[in-house]
Amino acid sequence: MVGQEFSNNRAIEVNSLNFYYGDSQALFDINIAIPRKMVTALIGPSGCGKSTFLRTLNRMNDIIDDVRLDGRIMVDGDDIYDSKMNIVTLRKKVGMVFQKSNPFPKSIFDNVAYGPRIHGTKSNSQLAEIVEKSLERSGLWEEVKDRLDDSALGLSGGQQQRLCIARALAVQPEILLMDEPASALDPRSTTKVEDLIGELKKDYTIIIVTHNMQQAARDSDHTAFFYEGRLVEYDETSNLFTNPKEKQTEDYITGRFG
């Protein structure tokens, strides 16, 4: 395990995490510490548990019936599955971008302002400022500044995904979870989203699930390889890709399976 260099600077610490859908176990004894303000990629074949793992970090799995989990997940030193944990506070702190962009059928402005409004920002000038800043962060401002009142559904796929990123940023999270954010995009939009991730890691801790090896190798500082619900290997990205310690990791990244 890596970790010495960031042991004091962990955004997330997971201990002995087991996760079950009904009777079938999806995650087995996961232990991982995720460093602050870096990009951590989760890779592995379909069904390996990486998305399930990602969704335990903001408790999005809670909305599924009949799931169960044991172990401990600490975010900023708080046990997020503790009964005292406020799930709203958690999800404000840990934002999420989904695989399929999901703009709401509202205007571009209202999409980005949605979170701040719900959390109590009422002043229009304040909202306008948040919207502008968030769209600027996601690199969309120049493209949409003249049509903020247009429906978000009129944007292209890549723009929609960056809008969803702006929407997540608008509630000022510290951590961003991204579930294959570029898998449904064309190559040019993918590049834009990847550049954006590189930009955002200055200020945010980013955890990204990806199927794309090149993307993981290019964009991330650390990479975790999941296989059949287990965390097989976790290392600095450069190490993991050039010098994998486990046979399964090597087979996967060289394309022998998955």
């Binding site: 903001n58 999005m60 909305i63 709203v88 506070t89 958690l90 999800r91 404000k92 934002g95 999420m96 989904f98 399929k100 999901n102 709401f104 949605y114 979170g115 719900i118 959390h119 969803c164 929407r167 997540a168 509630v171």
Partner: peptide, 20 residues
């Protein structure tokens, strides 16, 4: 995905239903 999108922004379930 609308419900999930709202919840992921830290809304309560009722807020997600009411607004989205």
């Amino acid at each position: 995905s609308f419900r999930e999108g709202s919840l992921a922004l830290g809304t309560t379930k009722w807020q997600a239903i009411r607004t989205n």
